[in-house]
């Protein structure tokens, strides 16, 4: 298991423009750790070097399952690990319903994606110190049981929105500074 991240993590759900990236610099200095989300127009993977130059201690990338099949999830994980991201956070992603749009992907769920990522790390396709986290929830027996499952299965941490923790998982939880389950 990779080392736990210390300190708060700021969630930047959207990278829209290069100016947005620059604006993260101050936040990065203040918070130290950033989870770069992929809800914006810019892919955090493509802008790794710009993100790295912000001077964050820990740089995580969010990998949404709503818009990727298994092949693309693998590709994102390997790319993120190879580029030097500290780790990835697996999340289902919001359910978008717009007229005329095809259905979202959700090829894997987070438990399946976690198993995939852990197997990839074990097989040497990801760096040994590449952290693997999962978006989880609290506030109900079902949600908290599932959150514990992720850690038992081998996730390095779970990520929760601000609010109630999952009892017993305090040492394995990153509580985001910014709002919400993946945007």
């Amino acid at each position: 298991m990779a080392e736990m991240i210390s300190g708060p993590v700021l969630y930047a759900p959207r990278l829209e423009t290069l100016e947005t990236l620059s604006a993260l610099k101050n936040l990065c200095e203040a918070h130290g750790n950033i989870l770069a989300g992929e809800y914006g127009d810019l892919s955090p993977l493509a802008f790794y070097h710009e993100l790295k130059n912000l001077g964050c201690e820990t740089l995580l990338v969010e990998i949404l399952l709503k818009n990727k099949n298994r092949g693309l999830v693998e590709s994102y994980l390997v790319t993120a690990s190879s580029l030097g991201f500290s780790g990835a956070v697996l999340a289902m992603g919001s359910f978008d319903k717009s007229p005329g749009m095809p259905m979202p992907v959700y090829d894997l769920d987070t438990a399946q994606a976690l198993r995939l990522a852990l197997d990839m790390r074990k097989a040497g396709r990801l760096r040994e110190d590449f952290r693997i986290g999962v978006r989880a929830a609290s506030g109900s027996g079902a949600a908290e049981t599932r959150a514990r499952y992720y850690i038992t299965e081998g996730a390095d941490f779970i990520v929760l929105p601000p609010g109630g923790p999952v009892p017993g998982l305090e040492g394995h939880t990153i509580t985001l500074k910014e709002a919400g389950p993946a945007a």
């Binding site: 289902m92 919001s94 359910f95 959700y106 438990a111 929830a137 506030g139 079902a142 389950p181 993946a182």
Partner: peptide, 20 residues
């Protein structure tokens, strides 16, 4: 489940309710 999750719930559960 609108997301067709086979190992749920997902992170979007709102207390005990579905976000969709």
């Amino acid at each position: 489940c609108p997301r067709r999750v086979r190992n749920g719930p997902c992170e979007h559960i709102l207390g005990t309710k579905c976000d969709v």
